[in-house]
C-alpha cells in the first residue's frame, strides 16, 4: 500500500517534471524531499517503533553526508559512472553513520526517557562541533586529517576535501530524483521487513512495556542497539543523498533545528506510521515553498499550522468528527487513541 502510493507520487512528479510543469524551485526540492522522507522513516523506527525520543538525528545525517561526499570525491576516478558512485557514497555514508550510531548507542541506551533524549541532543551538538573543526585532505601519500586547524600538510597536487567550518565545497551534484526515490523505497523495505520480523516485534514489546519485555527474555540493550544502528545507517544514506544535491555543504546545516524538523515530521505523521511520516515530510517541506506568496509571514504561518494541527489532532471532539466523516479511517484513529 505504502509502496504503491510512493511509486504513484514518484511517477506523477517525474512526469510533471519532464513535462516542465514544475517550477524550478520545486524541481530543486525533489531530492531534499526524498532525503527528508528517508530521514523521517529512519527516525520513526526509533521514536515510533522503539519508543525512545531522539533529538540528535541530524548528527547521523551529517556524518553520512560528510563521509559519503568525501568517499565520492575519492572515488571520482575509480568509478566513472555517477549513479554507481552515488550508491558507493551512500553505502560509505551509511556505514560511517552506523558506526557513529554504535559508538553513541553504548552510553545512550543505558539511559531512558527524557535523559536519553537530552544525551542524543548532546551528541548531535558534539558531532556538529567536531565536524566544524575537522580537516581532511588527500594527496599521493594517502589521506591526512587534523582537528581545529589545517595541519594536514598536503604534498603538492594534494586536495583538501573537508575544510573545517567551510565544509565541503565544489561537490558534484550527482543526486537525482530517481535515486532519491530508490532510496526511499529501500528504506521503506528495510523498515517494514524489520518491523514485521521477530526483531520488530521485540522493539514494539520494549516500547509497550519495558519490564514485561525484559521478563520474557528480550535482551533490551541488544534490540535497542539494533534499532538505533539501523536507524543511524539509513539516516547516513539520506544525509549523503541530501549533500550530493548541493555544491556546498557545511556542518551547521545539520543542527538541532534539523533534528527537530525531522521529529516534527514523525510526530505529525503519526508515530509508528511510516506512510504518515512520508506524507508529513513531503507536505511540510513543500508548505513553506507554497506559502512564499505570503513572503515575510510564511514561517509565522508555518508555526501556526504546526500548533493548530497538533491542537486539532489531539482534540477529542474534532477527532470524533473526522471518524464519523471517514469510515475507512476508523482503525487508524482507534490505534492512535489507544496510544494515549
Amino acid at each position: 500500500m505504502t509502496y504503491a502510493i510512493v511509486t504513484v507520487a514518484y511517477i506523477i512528479f517525474q512526469v510533471m517534471s519532464s513535462a516542465g510543469l514544475l517550477s524550478s524551485s520545486m524541481r530543486g526540492m525533489l531530492v531534499p524531499i526524498c532525503a527528508y522522507m528517508v530521514m523521517a522513516v529512519s527516525l520513526n523506527l526509533v521514536v515510533g517503533v522503539l519508543g525512545e525520543l531522539s533529538l540528535g538525528h541530524a548528527g547521523f545525517m551529517s556524518v553520512g553526508a560528510f563521509s559519503g561526499v568525501a568517499a565520492a570525491v575519492l572515488l571520482q576516478n575509480i568509478i566513472p559512472i555517477a549513479a554507481l558512485r552515488l550508491t558507493a557514497a551512500m553505502l560509505v555514508g551509511a556505514a560511517f553513520a552506523a558506526l557513529a550510531g554504535f559508538i553513541i548507542g553504548i552510553p545512550v541506551l543505558r539511559l531512558k526517557g527524557d535523559y536519553l533524549a537530552i544525551v542524543t541532543l548532546a551528541f548531535g551538538e558534539i558531532i556538529k562541533s567536531l565536524l566544524n573543526n575537522f580537516y581532511l585532505g588527500v594527496d599521493s601519500g594517502g589521506l591526512h586529517f587534523s582537528m581545529l586547524t589545517d595541519n594536514t600538510r598536503l604534498l603538492a597536487g594534494g586536495k583538501l576535501i573537508i575544510r573545517g567550518p567551510m565544509g565541503i565545497s565544489g561537490i558534484q551534484k550527482i543526486s537525482t530524483f530517481p535515486a532519491g526515490f530508490a532510496l526511499t523505497l529501500i528504506a521503506l523495505a528495510i523498515v517494514f521487513n524489520l518491523v514485521n520480523s521477530r526483531m520488530g516485534r521485540s522493539f514494539m514489546a520494549i516500547r509497550d512495556d519495558r519490564i514485561a519485555a525484559e521478563s520474557v527474555g528480550i535482551d533490551i540493550t541488544k534490540y535497542k542497539m539494533m534499532a538505533f544502528v539501523m536507524s543511524a545507517a539509513i539516516a547516513g544514506a539520506a544525509g549523503c543523498l541530501f549533500a550530493m544535491n548541493y555544491s556546498t555543504i557545511v556542518a551547521n546545516k545539520f543542527d538541532f533545528n534539523t533534528s527537530i524538523l525531522i521529529l516534527v515530521f514523525v510526530v505529525l505523521g503519526g508515530q509508528g506510521n511510516m506512510l504518515g511520516s512520508i506524507i508529513a515530510a513531503a507536505a511540510l517541506t513543500i508548505l513553506p515553498e507554497k506559502l512564499r506568496s505570503f513572503s515575510d509571514y510564511r514561517m509565522l504561518l508555518y508555526a501556526v499550522v504546526l500548533i493548530v494541527v497538533m491542537l486539532g489532532t489531539n482534540n477529542a471532539n474534532i477527532r470524533r468528527f473526522f471518524e464519523k466523516l471517514n469510515p475507512f479511517n476508523r482503525n487508524k484513529d482507534e490505534d492512535e487513541a489507544g496510544e494515549d
Binding site: L53, V267, M310, N314, E339
Partner: peptide, 14 residues
C-alpha cells in the same frame, strides 16, 4: 491529556 510528544511539538511550534 495528550501524549508528551504532542506537547513537545506544540512547544516547538510556539
Amino acid at each position: 491529556q495528550a501524549p508528551s510528544l504532542a506537547v513537545l511539538i506544540t512547544a516547538i511550534g510556539v
